[in-house]
């Protein structure tokens, strides 16, 4: 929780600094858009967090976003599937992808990095093959479905509204918090991420739990992909969702997940994902920062975050050692 407060401080600092430096930051349009983007990436980051907590990694998130993002309009427009069948299909695809990753990692005993790296390549290639590199869009239709991403819950007595993706994120987050902190499965994930051997010696089927984490990540990547394409309206198979896995992982790490496993809070991860989006927004809005160094700034901020985290940890352990030394005197 302390970690989440630290990252929340960073988020507020960036927001305030940007608001001072640019008068376009606090406009209704910008804030709403920012919340929408943050929510979408937050969903992806929560998926990544589950995998990272079990000491794994998922590099295929962006390609799953691309696959789902292109296949959904393709099924609706080109194949003329009904909406429920299309939604069911993408759910099945995302679930199948997560299940496949989990089984390859636990039963075939392949490394998560390798499995999901192959996934990253495979799903993008597959998408481009299926849709023949053609941009897939809704052609102005399906506006009810697109409300899922574009709509908002207007707040009474104000001009503001909460974008729907944000509501979806809140629902996902609540479920994730319950799963991670209050169910036996979440406890098993935290335990196996820290020490798989001891968890196995406690009679827990660690394979099943690991597979569950990848399934969750697959499903949330699929949900993200759907919401992204509903928001934008069209998807180009060549670059839709490019690098999204890195934003998702960076958000999770910035939010307090350790790639060594066993650590992380959902709230922290959501704030981490928001920091990434606000930072991108800042670079666009603040004229003093040239847009072309965007990646350098993001990289530096993440690096700064993890260095600070490591230093704080060291300080805490030194303080503990001093305390113990005093007690033995």
């Amino acid at each position: 929780m302390k970690k989440a407060l630290g990252i929340l401080g960073l988020l507020i600092f960036i927001c305030v600094a940007t608001a001072i430096m640019s008068d376009r930051f606090l406009t209704e349009y910008n804030v709403e858009n920012l919340i929408r983007r943050s929510a979408l990436f937050g969903i992806l980051s929560i998926g990544a967090a589950f995998v990272i907590i079990t000491a794994g990694i998922d590099l295929s998130i962006g390609s799953v976003v691309c696959l789902v993002g292109c296949i959904l309009p393709w099924m609706l427009i080109e194949c003329e599937f009904s909406v429920p069948i299309a939604l069911l299909s993408i759910t099945g695809i995302s679930l199948g992808i997560g299940l496949t990753h989990g089984i390859l990692i636990t039963k075939v005993k392949l490394q998560p990095f390798v499995v999901t790296l192959c996934g990253l390549l495979f799903y993008r290639g597959l998408t481009r093959g299926i849709v023949q590199d053609q941009t897939q869009g809704f052609r102005g239709g399906f506006s009810e479905l697109r409300e899922l991403s574009q709509g908002q819950l207007s707040l009474p007595y104000t001009d503001f509204g909460i974008p729907n993706p944000c509501l979806i994120l809140i629902a996902v987050a609540i479920l994730a918090i319950i799963l991670l902190n209050y169910t036996v499965y979440g406890r098993y994930m935290l335990a196996l991420g820290r020490n798989e051997t001891a968890t196995r010696y406690s009679g827990i089927n660690t394979d099943k739990i690991t597979i569950l984490a990848y399934v969750i990540c697959g499903l949330l990547s699929g949900l993200g992909g759907m919401l992204f394409v509903l928001d934008v309206g069209s998807a180009q198979p060549v670059d839709f969702g490019n690098f999204y896995e890195l934003y998702a992982i960076a958000g999770a790490v910035l939010g307090g997940c350790s790639l060594r496993g066993g650590e992380g809070t959902i709230i922290g991860v959501i704030i981490g994902a928001a920091v990434m989006q606000v930072l991108k927004n800042t670079i666009t809005l603040v004229d003093a920062i040239p847009t072309n160094i965007e990646y350098a700034v993001i990289g530096a901020v993440i690096l700064g975050g993890v260095i600070t985290d490591e230093l704080v940890k060291r300080l805490a352990s030194r303080r503990r050692a001093n305390l113990q030394a005093k007690q033995t005197d």
Binding site: R187, L190, A191, R194, N195, T197, A198, T199, Y201, G262
Partner: peptide
């Protein structure tokens, strides 16, 4: 290695 998850508490 096998008996404990060192970073968890006694209760967990």
């Amino acid at each position: 290695q096998e008996g404990l998850i060192l970073d968890m508490g006694t209760k967990d």
